[in-house]
Each structure stands twice: as structure tokens, then as C-alpha cells.
Amino acid sequence: MSENMTDQSRRSFIKKAATGSAIATIAPGVVLYNVAQASRDPGEAVTDKVRWGMLIDANKCADGCTDCVTACHEENGVHQLGRPATDAQWIRKVTLRDKQTGKEYGIPMLCQHCEHPPCVDVCPTGASFKRADGIVLVDKHICIGCRYCMMACPYKARSFIHEDVTDQRDHAPRGKGTVESCTFCVHKVDAGEGTTACVEACTHNALIFGDLNDPDSEVSRELNNYPSRQLRADLRLNQGVRYRNI
């Protein structure tokens, strides 16, 4: 409970800081860029002026650390039932080895928020959709649970809810028989926080979240200055999530 309170107060602090000025410095070296988001009036629809994205640095992602996974599932009320084959996973840690050199990498895998998402193309009802600002979501109100999106996703980012769910978070409704995945913490984005639970939780600064359309955002500057990679770039999906040093 007390942990929850701290979390809440910290969140409201960030919110205040973010709305107070367009760019807020909350700690030396940690800067919140909220230019585009702050310009959205309350009650106004999201637009494609912003495209949310993430850069993940494999070199910085620490061996054995799963803080981002814990934080995500805590934030979104994704409870594990000890059944890995059917439990929902919005983000997961994967350790890879280069077949030739033997070099090992650890990276978190999450919904890649593609510009051309295969899950959206195949969804029969349009429940799987991409918001104007690039966030790929499932509208659970019209999801019929056909699981075709899971067949289509190249990244295994989607989970089907296999059993009854209770104690959901109010910003992350979840229910048996529908499909879900990472939302880029859309409730935080909409609140103007400009960050996600996994990014906030990463103490190794391996994750950077921001607006890819804003050339001055940290994520854009990092992507411009150093090489990065898209997973399965051959599919030409133009993902919102990029990886460095793999």
C-alpha cells in the first residue's frame, strides 16, 4: 500500500512538472520532453504530428535484470498465474547469442508498434488498430478473440487471455477471451507524462521513450547519432521500437 502511495505521488509530481513547462528537468541528465504532447489540448484527439517510439540499448540492458517486466506488469495489472504457456506477457526479457561470434545480448521484447502492423491488417473486426500517434492497441470492446493477430505478429507480442481476470487496473481493462499487448502505457502518454512504466523502471538507462517525429527529442537525437536496428527489418514494418548494439 505504502509503495503504491509513493508511486502515486511520484506520478502526480511528474505530471505537474510536465504540464508546468514544455521541457522539464527532473534530475541531472534526465530530461522529459513533452513539447508535442503538451501542445495537445485536453479533450482533443491525438494526431499523427506525434509518433511515439522507443530505443533499446542492448549494451546497457543488464544481465539478469527484469525490472522493466515487473514494472510493466505491475503498472498494467498483468498478474502471472505460474502458467507460462498461457499467462499474458506484455514485455519479456530475451537473451540472445550471435551464432558466429558467441557474443551474448539481453533485450526486452515488447509490441514493436509498427507503422504497418500485420496485426491490424488481419483483424477481422478492426479491434486491432493503430492510433494516430503510432500506438498499436486492441479495442477489447470489439475483439472477438479469434487470435488471428497472434498468428500474424512477427514478434509474439500478443497474448490471449486464457482465464478469468480480476483486480484489473482501471486504466488497463483486461478480460478473458480477448487479446492484448503492450500499450506503450497509453494512459501515461495521454496524461502528458511522456514516458512508460518500463522506461521509468530501468535503472540502467537502457530504454528511451519519446516522439520520433520531433527531431529534438532524446530518442530522435540518439537514433540520428548512432546506428540502430529494427527486428525483422526485412518485413518493412517500420517499427516504433528500435534496438542498438545487437
Binding site: P42, G43, A45, V46, F129, R131, L137, D139, H141, D190
Partner: peptide
């Protein structure tokens, strides 16, 4: 409201 929130990101006080 549900469609406004889901698709257009209208949340919170608005």
C-alpha cells in the same frame, strides 16, 4: 466516450 478514449486518447478530466 469509450470510442473517444480508446481511439482518440481523450481521458481524465475531459
Amino acid at each position: 466516450q469509450r470510442d473517444e478514449t480508446m481511439h482518440n486518447g481523450v481521458r481524465g478530466i475531459t
